[in-house]
């Protein structure tokens, strides 16, 4: 089980992860969905202690990752493919990591076979394709036979067969009662793999709900509210299965409450609302809206590249 409480990470003035709280339960696959740059990787890096949270805490099975006596046996993490010296072979890389926990070499050979790397185990990692790099990363994650798996975009660069294999692996591990936390920026991929979804955008949790709820397009009552005292209103609205997201200084988005209830709670707390707009939006639509910005970002990059080509020709 992974528990994050008010986890925040600042890089200079930029806030990559903004007071994020969630729980990843054992026995199911939890998808961590968000567009690129939403804070997925940073959150995962904080879970395993590579990045220190600016504020807040995150624990794995009740303890900070670094406080476990055998971290590799507790958590298996794939953070970025090819976190390996290019001139080292896959087998040596695995053996060097196994040595830290006195994991027998037989287990190294086992995970090599399990991830389909037998044929290239003695080859230098520098020559690996992205897909093979991902397989090696997964082999590392499985090395300690951990109770918790954290996989950051594991299907990136995998062929269709590999994608299916990762899905199968994730489901199998969850079926054994393990905690499986997988990030992706693709809703479609998560729809096939995850039991539960945590959606993150611009460093904040947008949704934390069972996958059926997201997939069925079940429309949750959603509303946009403007008030002068957003903090107080957010506190007044918080509750089970309710997502409250701060959009700007005076605007918040509320998912899970209808307009009438919101107005009633505001009145109870003596908070003035100056806008209350009901919105019919499924979580998937919310996610699509979120990634829309990302798409625009990509296309502007494309234009730059195009301009660059023209420059060369001139």
């Amino acid at each position: 089980m992974i528990t994050a409480e008010a986890l925040t990470k600042n890089y200079g003035v930029k806030r990559a992860v903004d007071s994020v709280s969630f729980t990843v339960q054992p026995g199911k696959v939890t998808g961590f969905l968000g567009p690129n740059g939403a804070g997925k990787s940073t959150t995962m890096r904080m879970i395993v202690g590579l990045d220190r949270p600016s504020t807040g805490t995150v624990t794995v099975n009740g303890r900070k990752y670094g406080e476990h006596a055998a971290p590799l046996r507790e958590v298996g993490a794939l953070l970025e493919a090819k976190s390996v010296h290019k001139s080292r072979s896959a087998r040596t890389h695995l053996r060097s990591l196994a040595a830290t926990h006195s994991i027998p070499n037989a287990r190294v050979d086992e995970v090599i076979e399990l991830t389909g790397l037998s044929a290239v185990a003695t080859k230098k990692v520098g020559g690996f394709s992205l897909g093979m790099g991902q397989r090696l990363g997964i082999a590392v994650a499985l090395l300690g036979d951990p109770q918790t798996l954290i996989l950051d975009e594991p299907v990136n660069g995998l062929d269709p067969e590999g994608v299916q294999w990762v899905r199968h692996l994730a489901r199998q591990q969850a079926a054994q009662g393990k905690t499986v936390f997988i990030s992706s920026h693709l809703m479609s991929e998560m729809a096939l793999t995850a039991d539960h979804l945590i959606i993150i955008g611009r460093g904040r949790i947008i949704a934390d709900a069972p996958i059926e709820q997201v997939i069925s397009g079940q429309n949750l009552p959603t509303a946009r509210v403007k008030t002068d005292d957003a903090d107080a209103l957010m506190n007044a609205l918080l509750g089970e299965n309710i997502q409250v997201t701060r959009l700007d200084a005076e605007t918040i988005s509320v998912v899970g409450l209808d307009g009438r209830t919101i107005a009633q709670r505001a009145l109870d707390h003596n908070i003035l609302l100056h806008e209350l707009t009901p919105q019919q939006q499924s979580l998937e639509e919310a996610y699509m809206a979120l990634t829309q910005n990302d798409v625009e970002y990509h296309s502007s990059l494309g234009q730059q590249a195009f301009a660059g080509t023209n420059g060369k020709q001139a």
């Binding site: 395993v48 890389h93 830290t100």
Partner: peptide, 14 residues
Amino acid sequence: TTGSARSTFVAVPN
């Protein structure tokens, strides 16, 4: 420079 630090320090967070 190679990124192997990620593997190293996830295996041994100390």
